[in-house]
Design a protein around this nucleic acid. Structure first.
Lengths: 338, 338
DNA sequence: TTGTATGCGTTATCAT
DNA sequence: ATGATAACGCATACAA
């Protein structure tokens, strides 16, 4: 009935400007090789019709969508916002939109939505050994990059923190402070960062003549509850544990909450160290000492690798390992006298 | 060179199955009115070729993308993950994908990406009075819904919490506890929730014969720093302020940090109340007393409204106001003796 | 410098 | 029950 409410197409703009449709396409993309007058006339007409190129039409022919999928865990786990936000910002900066793709152990990410051509590439932040997703993406020819976690030996680009070195540094910090009864809440053993941090901790401790007493070790997902519950458990069932090394900051925050809840002072009565240096680690109430990995850099570098991969799917794979540094705040202290 | 690495199309499937392309389309969509044998043959061929329908082709003709944009603030502000996550989950449940669209006072959301046909609808969580976005979306015919915040008088669907009532409840709680020197950190006055919570607080206080002393009032964005700094300021420049009402939980968490940092005990020395009941409010160290709004319900209801709007763009607008309830935890207490 | 013509992969209409 | 055919809106190769 009312043809005016129809969405304007490049043909409409062409008609109004008195040019051909292809001229409209050229003009609006600023292609050069055309008279300034024509371009102006087209731009004027486009403005008048509030014309915005229809994305599906364009991507059907260009085979590009300027969208990238970010596979991440539950956003209410504070680690993911801190990783996704800089990712999103970097993607936006490069003219890409971010599509959120949830992934968890219980409900693995859906592959269909990543292989229907609606994404130019995918960033994987939750890789686990044995996961089928990377294979499926590779088979489908979808460019992707491992971030934060990787799958060793899998031929793909990756950007990760130097987890081993960070954990060694943690061990040294604790030993220097006089801790001998060190406890730990380790991450899942089917994740690269979980394993590397574990290995680094053992290595660092051993190098200083210390060992991890299995009685002081707990293991679980990288989440608050794991840290909270494991800490209460450690508090209830072990003696003299003076420090708890956590698989990441979110776990460490859970540990802080447990320790404080138990009436102990973090830093004085119990040393807690995290990993990642998420924003909340810097909140005054926590003052979490942690191994910092620049998440903004991690995001930027990951996006950069993905862009290169999209640009040239045949290029050789790159693995970027980011420096880490110990961020000393208030959650550590000398070992309390036994 | 290698035609086998080309993406399979419905034509490829048709050729392999020995049927026409249109039959493939029908078979794979389960359209009925065709022989089971043919369907099976098509499905078999599709599987063999790992065929996934190309999204751009489909959406070009169907005019639907099964993608929804969620306009939200910086994810490192813990309120947004708590709102976006259930939103994403609900959208996924309905077969929609979530596209993250950032929006802040400094850099307002880009309209182009919402009007290029790549989104079936948009959810606005950061509406501000005077914002052009809602008008632009309406002009472009893009279905959208206000969530969390709205613009009063703007003809659109909306789903918000009962902010006024919640703030009145807060006032009553404080007065009942004996607080008379009540301080407040109010939200931006160009946001509906900021204004409504402010109005409700005043109303509730006045009804009990109390008034807000301007000296005890600060104002700022809904973020941690606002709560932290305003609280330090309040602590330094006012006497006897025994309670601080915050515009939301994130601000309240900032306030808790400031108060604790100052060596005071939250709940005993200073009462702090938030709004929203985000997950972190329940963390043991904070035990934040707050006015709860079921964010999962907010998300689900918002998505429902959007779906209805997409389905029928001409239907009359609906405004849903969600119940709130006071969640009493540990951050409140009786007014300390003066 | 500009126009004509073609095709991207899908859904959908219309025959048969 | 199935096949031919025509759009959908755009970019692009080629002609002029």
């Amino acid at each position: 009935m009312s043809p005016s409410s129809r969405r304007a197409t490049s043909h409409d703009v062409a008609r109004l400007a008195g040019v051909s449709q292809s001229t409209v396409s050229r003009a609006l993309r600023g292609l050069g090789g055309m008279s300034p007058e024509t371009r102006q006339r087209v731009e004027q007409a486009a403005r008048q019709l509030a014309y915005v190129p229809f994305e599906a039409g364009r991507s059907l022919v260009t085979r590009a969508t300027r969208r990238v999928g970010v596979v991440a865990g539950d956003l209410t786990n504070p680690f993911f916002p801190d990783l996704v936000e800089p990712m999103r910002a970097e993607l936006e900066h490069r003219g890409y939109r971010t599509v959120l793709i949830p992934d968890s152990v219980e409900s693995p990410a859906d592959v269909q939505v990543m292989t229907d051509g609606s994404l130019d590439g995918v960033i994987l932040t939750t890789a686990r050994m044995g996961s089928r997703l990377p294979h499926q993406l590779a088979d489908a020819g979808v460019p992707f990059v491992f971030t934060n976690r990787e799958i060793h030996g899998f031929p793909a680009d990756a950007c990760v923190a130097d987890n081993r070195l960070g954990a060694v540094a943690t061990a040294n910090l604790l030993v220097d402070l006089g801790h001998r009864a060190v406890g730990a809440i380790l991450g899942p053993s089917d994740t690269s960062n979980g394993r590397e941090r574990e290995a680094g901790l053992l290595e660092g401790l051993n190098a200083r003549g210390l060992y991890l007493d299995p009685a002081r070790v707990r293991r679980g997902e990288f989440d608050f509850d794991t840290g909270y519950r494991a800490s209460l458990d450690l508090l209830a069932n072990t003696d003299r544990t003076s420090a708890i090394v956590c698989s990441n900051d979110v776990v460490a925050l859970g540990a802080c909450n447990a320790v404080m809840k138990a009436g102990l002072a973090v830093g004085r009565d119990m040393t807690i160290v995290g990993f990642d240096n998420i924003r909340m680690a810097g909140w005054p109430v926590f003052g979490l000492t942690t191994v910092g990995c620049d998440l903004t850099k991690l995001a930027a570098e990951s996006v950069r690798l993905l862009m290169l991969r999209i640009q040239d799917p045949t290029r050789s794979h790159t693995r970027v390992v980011l420096d880490v540094n110990v961020v000393e705040r208030a959650s550590h202290g000398t070992a309390s006298v036994n």
